[in-house]
Simulated scan of single mutants.
Amino acid sequence: MTLLLVLVGAAIGAPLRYLTDRAVQARHDTVFPWGTFTVNVVGSLILGAIAGGTTAGVVPDQLQYLVGTGFCGALTTYSTFSYETLRLVEQNAKFFAAANLAASIIAGLGGAFIGATVTQAIWS
């Protein structure tokens, strides 16, 4: 059952990542990878909320597998973040590469912290 939940979550998260990336990137005329940045921050926020709900004891294991492991695992993408950052360096867009690195780490951790804090505050 666990594997099925992870697969279902991933089957939703992966296409949503692609569609979100394309939609967001199409609205920005810059080399900065806004699409990947968006899915990674949103995924971190959702995963933080799941973690906060788990800590509060209100998120069942099945939801962790479906949303946390499956959906967020497929929605977020460390490999694409790494590739796009390296590509920016290769294109001599070092400012954008550094901005992507710093903003992704800060916003991703911030999103996870906010998600966990809000969820814990609601359910504790």
Rank of each mutant, 00 (worst) to 15 (best):
A74P: 15
G43N: 05
G52I: 13
F71I: 00
L86M: 12
G73S: 10
L45T: 14
T76A: 01
T76R: 01
F32L: 06
T85Q: 02
V41D: 00
N40V: 06
T69I: 15
P60T: 05
L88P: 10
D61E: 14
L47Y: 06
V39R: 06
P33S: 03
T38D: 07
P60L: 04
G43L: 05
I50R: 00
T85D: 00
P60K: 02
L66D: 02
P60Q: 08
G70H: 11
G48W: 12
P60S: 09
T36P: 14
I46N: 03
D61Q: 13
G48Y: 11
T69A: 13
T54V: 13
L45Q: 07
T69M: 11
Y78N: 03
T80H: 05
I46Y: 09
S44Y: 08
T85Y: 01
G53E: 06
T69S: 11
Q62A: 15
I50D: 01
L88I: 01
A51S: 12
G70E: 02
Y78F: 15
E84P: 14
T55G: 00
T77P: 00
W34K: 03
V67I: 15
T76V: 04
S82I: 02
F71A: 03
V89S: 02
F71Q: 08
I46T: 08
T76K: 02
F81G: 05
Y78Q: 01
V59N: 02
L86I: 11
L88W: 04
G35Q: 12
V59E: 01
E84F: 13
D61F: 11
G70Y: 09
L45H: 09
F32D: 05
T76H: 04
G48Q: 06
T30G: 08
G52L: 11
G53V: 13
I50H: 02
G43Q: 04
T77M: 01
E84K: 13
T30S: 15
I46V: 15
T77W: 01
G43V: 06
L66P: 15
G57W: 11
G70I: 05
S44L: 09
G53S: 11
D61M: 08
G52V: 14
T38A: 12
Y65F: 14
G48M: 10
V58R: 08
V59Y: 10
G68L: 09
W34V: 05
T55D: 04
G52C: 10
G68H: 10
S44Q: 04
Q64M: 10
V41E: 00
W34R: 07
V89Y: 03
F32A: 03
S44C: 15
T85V: 07
Q62P: 01
G52T: 12
